[in-house]
Write a protein that binds this DNA or RNA. Structure first.
Lengths: 303, 303
DNA sequence: ACACCCGTGAAGCTTTGCTTCACGCTCAGA
DNA sequence: TCTGAGCGTGAAGCAAAGCTTCACGGGTGT
């Protein structure tokens, strides 16, 4: 393969009409230029430059090669410009994975702000369950993912770097006509005789309930197992029972339910930002990363 | 500037989907490929490949760069193909300088044969006088030139390489009704009382006459100074005098003159092939060089 | 559980490329 | 005619880049 640096030298020499001028322009010594062009001529198997008393002039082959060189150099510049566009966030795609319940509060704000700040970037958001999020992260389908965990079961995946975003306290959902509906705050010990609605499939919030009740000295009576928080709220609203939920999951609650804070002794869900710890990360990813951290910080201070 | 060899590596990796396969294909070790791509990523400032368990997959930036790489590589191949065309005599131009009197005999045959053998090459022939021929040769305007000299004044130009082509004996031109017109051969000593026609402007043939007459013991009587051999023949044909000429110059003589051979004691013109002694010469030039040598050899044996 | 394939890293050798220094040549001006 | 500036070139040597070898860790499929 022809050496492109030599071709660039040739093009400069042909343009300037002199090796010394080309050397000067490219920051080399005339000797280096002379040597490289000599090699290029040997590679080409034919003379590329007519040496004249005053500078040089391209031969037919030299002019031909110089033309090709210019094309190649233009293309390389274009490639560099493209990289600069990606780096400058004027182009590119970033994919983020999220879990469903985050989508109701923190995520919309992050997405809309990102779209506003970087109108030329494309942002793909995939919402799926925890296990798949980690897979997507590991195989590079998404560059960034939002994860969650609880204190007794911290996320720990090799080669995945985590940034805690916010603590998502567990809240109590009661029907609008429930005896506690008027209160803004209560404690677990006050709830010993309630019927409970939990998330099905051994969902972590079930364990939150378990642990909190045990700490308060009673065993919860399970009245219903819901598939999501919408379902849970619906059941709560008609008085089937009461339920626990992370606060972000009930950011826009069902009209016939009320949300009460609980004490800090009830475990809070932690929301994390995760990415593969690669040496290098795509610029658009870094931008989204920082933006999500910022949004989360604001969200934490004034929820 | 992005390193094209690295880009080629990237393109191969993207094509094959694996560093090892690319390394194999290009004759490197996987380690080398890995190291070079790592560097390329650092240069690019962003990841180019997603490392997966089974091979790698390009990132957005990687795919972009690989695309540019393919264009560059295609262009380089085209450049190499062009060089091969020049080398393979399927393309190119060669310029040759000649002196006028050679154009009547040896040259037409060389040109027509060259055109026949290399229909894709362009052959430019410039006819001019000796001094300018050397200049054209020196500044590369022509790659090859036909020159001539006489024994007492050999061509010797620095950095110009010479190949003797043929000896061009001096002949005698007489009118068709001249006393010697029936003979095929004569000697200078038989011509002591003739009137002579010579080439003007101190043309070398005047010196040939000078020297030959002196050797034969007489001084020639100059009747007319002609500007070229056509003019000289015309004057000879009407009986103004007789003239000397190189045989090639009167290859197609005037109908009313006769050409007689002279002895070897009359100096012969030497015809030479000249070129700059560059390390490298254009392939088309080399081809023409060889062809002219061949034609001259044939011409010499059966003139 | 095993071998196999993939990517990666450290160390070291070889090649390449560039600089420095010096020379020959040509042209322009004193 | 001489002289200096500009140009291309060459030898020597140094610094850097590139590649190989050898070795390891991790994931996959039998």
């Amino acid at each position: 393969m022809l050496d492109v640096r030599r071709l660039a030298l040739l093009a400069a020499v042909v343009d300037t009409g002199s090796m010394t001028a080309a050397a000067d322009q490219l920051g080399y010594t005339p000797s280096a230029v002379s040597q490289q062009l000599r090699r290029l001529e040997v590679e080409a198997g034919q003379p590329l430059l007519h040496r004249q008393a005053r500078g040089v002039r391209p031969t037919e082959a030299g002019a031909l090669l110089a033309g090709h060189a210019r094309h190649v150099l233009r293309r390389l510049s274009a490639a560099e410009a493209d990289l600069a566009e990606l780096a400058g966030l004027r182009r590119g795609t970033v994919a983020m994975g999220v879990f469903p319940t985050i989508a109701s509060a923190l995520l919309p704000q992050a997405v809309s702000r990102f779209r506003r700040q970087h109108p030329d970037l494309r942002l793909d958001v995939r919402s799926t369950r925890f296990d798949e999020l980690v897979e997507l992260l590991e195989d590079g389908t998404v560059g960034i993912a939002l994860l969650w965990d609880y204190a007794w079961n911290r996320v720990d995946v090799p080669d995945i770097s985590l940034t805690p975003l916010l603590d998502d306290p567990t809240v109590l959902i009661v029907a609008a006509d429930h005896r506690l509906a008027r209160k803004r705050f209560t404690t677990m010990s006050d709830l010993a005789h309630e019927d409970w609605i939990v998330r099905a499939h051994e969902h972590p919030v079930a364990e939150v309930l378990e642990r909190s009740c045990r700490a308060a000295g009673f065993t919860p009576k399970i009245a219903f197992e819901a598939n999501d928080y919408q379902e849970a709220q619906a059941m709560v609203s008609v008085g089937v029972g009461i339920a626990l939920a992370p606060r972000t999951a009930v950011r826009n609650p069902h009209p016939d339910v009320r949300v009460l804070a609980l004490g800090t002794d009830v475990p809070a869900r932690r929301v994390l930002l995760a990415h593969r710890q690669d040496r290098l990360r795509a610029p658009a990813e870094l931008a989204l990363h920082q933006l999500v951290v910022d949004v989360a910080r604001e969200y934490q201070t004034k929820p």
